[in-house]
Design a binder for these strands. Structure first.
Length: 702
DNA sequence: CTTAGGG
DNA sequence: CCCTAAG
């Protein structure tokens, strides 16, 4: 479980301004644990550190590859004071490490610490499977005396430091490090993911270059959102009706609601799941821009190293439900405290991004298909181009032409060697594939999740146009997958993918996009589209760089278009009518039991608190958003008011409809009263102010 | 982010 | 279910 944490951290360290501590973990995780990084300035942002590391690797590879080390000798230098030194504790050449371990993922990480003694392998086994790693356990594992001393010690210090830093987190809740701690990994993950989205300016809005109709707009909203999370309120606290009084199970109806003992489990859900993940469909542009803009390569002065990852420990017994908010809060602080100093970054750099993150929808799969079954979206690291051929009999033949790798951005300076570029690619891909792969099946752009169904049942038949069938490669969900399965994040990723696959505006969505856009199998092998889009991407990419270099000549070097073509996978987002690409969620008619739950919740909470309704009765029904509930209520009211003959779909019991009407009437009245009360208050205020104006000071007024 | 309402 | 305006 917690291995994932490292994995994710790594992902972030790579393209975020995480501090050394974060990167540290990621670094080791990468399988180069024996190569220490010494950082004088522990606040050095991950970027710089990574860049240094990349430079180091590059240098090594180059110097060893040829005698021409002049360029390579241009050691990466972290601007300003903090310095970074690389050391190797063993004899293995860095180069080898880079090539051989990059793809090992977490298993590699583990190996690092158990290698000294083969009998220590047992460590590995407990590791990934531990269902309740506590921080303490974690430390002990990492610092196992049998492990490399240096590594262990360093890691330990990192962890300790993190813990300390956490103590300064506002809102921290003292609590024992019980099994719940295992949730922190997820929180970290979710947070990190989200962080990617909101890593905009210091809470400020970036000029929106897009029209209001542009999907990009969505991204723009983040800063605002972030700023508004100050209100860390606990919904249940203000609930007139104790949430406990709201049965989670009613009439034997389960709505994917977990009982009160399900805290731990709940942690497995994406804590940050939310719409937040959805919008940034085009965050790519933004992110890339940032990456290329020197001004973002800053150092986090006094940022607490783990403000981000903290929440884990904080949540003593707090309802996980609120973690999200708390996290947001922490994130906000982070933003405010973060970048000031500016540091120039130069030399080699290898930036690897992977929007897909390590999410994995599979993670979301639960036995109860009905409840969590379908988050659209897939882990999306890859998307396959596939062609299917009909055949006689009832046989269905499939032929996967190729898979393309979307959302993989690799940057290297012009002076980098082809070899280093290859390694960078290998590393990037390896990182993603570290955990193995899974294959997803898409039909008409929708994921076919039920593995037990037959092709026929799934609609995959020779009669169908098999072009509508698609496959996707996804990172294997590690153990108990992390909550990255946030419904939205997943949805998001695929969108980026679609762009990568084709620039055709007609491309609906990632999934179906492939087949729809490339109906002719022959086209599947045609790279024109990709190349073209790449060029476009690159050019815009270069433009950005150019712009920035005007103010800072030390900015990164633009990636030559040539490289882009070589990397049929460096698809940067392009501006396009993404909005048209968004796929509609699959329709999910409410079941009677859901209606029942909804009605009950509304009876208790009223019609103006959909978020609470969601939380109380549908918290675990990830596919039901509060908006959905609101809409459903709307239709229910309507349904209840029309003649039974006009109703469609699964009939809703009349008694339920009557309750709907009753609740509707009741709360409508309630709202009216409230409104009336407000008016009265307003009147009073006016009266008061009037009184003040008249010199009748009254500090108690209002 | 949430709500409320139109599409 | 989606989209948006508003808060």
């Amino acid at each position: 479980m917690y291995l994932l944490q490292f994995k994710v951290w790594l992902a972030f360290a790579i393209h975020d301004n995480h501090t050394y501590n974060h990167l540290c973990l990621g670094y080791w995780f990468q399988g180069r644990g024996l190569n220490k990084i010494k950082v004088e300035d522990s606040q050095i942002c991950a970027f710089e550190l990574l860049a240094s590391l990349a430079g180091k690797l590059l240098q090594e590879s180059e110097s060893s590859a040829s005698s021409n080390a002049s360029e390579a000798n241009d050691q990466p230098v972290i601007g300003g004071g903090g310095g970074v030194k690389f050391e190797q504790d063993d004899d293995r050449p860095l180069k080898a490490e880079c090539l051989d371990h990059g793809s090992c993922g977490e298993s590699d990480f583990v190996t690092q610490f158990s290698s000294p003694n083969s009998d220590q392998k047992c460590l590995l086994n407990e590791f990934p499977h531990a269902e309740s790693n506590s921080i303490l356990e974690r430390s002990s594992v990492i610092t196992n005396p049998n492990s490399s001393k240096n590594v262990g010690a360093d890691l330990k210090s990192v962890i300790c430091k993190s813990k300390n830093a956490c103590e300064n987190i506002p809102g921290k809740v003292e609590g024992s490090l019980d099994s719940r701690v295992s949730c922190d990994g997820y929180m970290d993950i979710g947070l990190s993911r989200q962080k990617r989205w909101d890593r905009l300016d210091n809470g400020g809005l970036i000029a929106d270059p897009c029209s209001s109709n542009d999907p990009m707009k969505m991204c723009m909203k983040f800063p605002a959102v972030i700023n508004s999370v100050n209100n860390v309120e606990l919904p249940s606290c203000r609930d007139p009706v104790p949430s406990a009084s709201i049965p989670r199970y009613r009439n034997g109806t389960k709505l994917g609601i977990r009982d009160d003992d399900g805290n731990f489990t709940r942690c497995n859900k994406p804590l940050t799941k939310s719409k937040a993940f959805r919008p940034p469909q085009r965050i790519g542009d933004r992110r890339i821009r940032k990456l290329l803009t020197s001004k973002y390569w800053k150092v986090a002065p006094k940022l607490k190293d783990c403000e981000f990852s903290k929440p884990a420990f904080l949540e003593g017994g707090m309802n996980s439900r609120y973690l999200k908010r708390k996290l947001s809060y922490g994130r906000e602080r982070y933003q405010h405290n973060t970048f000031y100093k500016r540091r120039k970054f130069t030399d080699h750099s290898v930036v690897v991004t992977s929007d897909g993150g390590f999410s994995s929808e599979s993670v979301c799969n639960s036995p109860d298909k009905n409840m969590t079954g379908d988050k659209n979206g897939a882990a999306i690291m890859f998307h396959g181009h596939q062609a299917a051929f009909h055949s006689k009999d009832s046989q269905v033949k499939f032929s996967i032409k190729s898979f393309r790798v979307p959302e993989l951005l690799i940057e290297v300076p012009e002076t980098a060697t082809v070899g280093s570029l290859k390694r960078a690619v290998v590393e990037a891909v390896s990182t993603i594939l570290g955990g193995g792969l899974r294959v997803g099946v898409l039909l008409h752009g929708k994921k076919v999740r039920d593995d037990s169904r037959t092709l026929l049942q799934s609609g995959i038949t020779s009669n169908e146009n098999l072009d509508t069938l698609g496959f996707s490669l996804e990172p294997t969900p590690v153990q108990v997958p992390p909550p990255l399965c946030a419904e939205d994040p997943l949805t998001l990723l695929p969108c980026d993918t679609s762009q990568l696959i084709s620039r055709s505006p007609t491309t609906p969505i990632v999934d179906s996009g492939i087949s729809d856009t490339l109906p002719d199998p022959a086209l599947l092998t045609n790279l024109d589209t990709n190349i073209e889009s790449n060029r476009e991407s690159v050019s815009s990419h270069a433009d950005i760089v150019t712009d920035n270099t005007l103010s800072d000549s030390r900015a990164l070097v633009a990636v030559p278009p040539v490289n882009a073509e070589e990397l049929a996978m460096v698809p940067l987002n392009q501006k396009s009518k993404r909005s048209e690409l968004v796929q509609r969620r699959t329709r999910r008619p409410f079941s009677v039991s859901e209606v029942e739950a909804l009605v009950h919740a509304v009876e208790e909470l009223g019609t103006g608190r959909w978020r609470d309704v969601k939380l109380c009765s549908f918290e675990d029904a990830d596919h039901r958003t509060y908006v959905d509930l609101k809409d459903k209520w709307k239709t229910l009211v309507h349904t209840a008011q029309i003649a039974p003959q006009q109703r469609r779909g699964e009939p809703v019991p009349q008694d339920l409809l009557e309750r709907v009407l009753a609740a509707h009437a009741y709360w409508s009245q309630h709202q009216a009263n409230k409104q009336h009360g407000k008016n009265q208050t307003a009147t009073l205020k006016i009266t008061d102010s009037h009184a003040v104006r008249n010199g009748v000071e009254d500090n108690h007024s209002i």
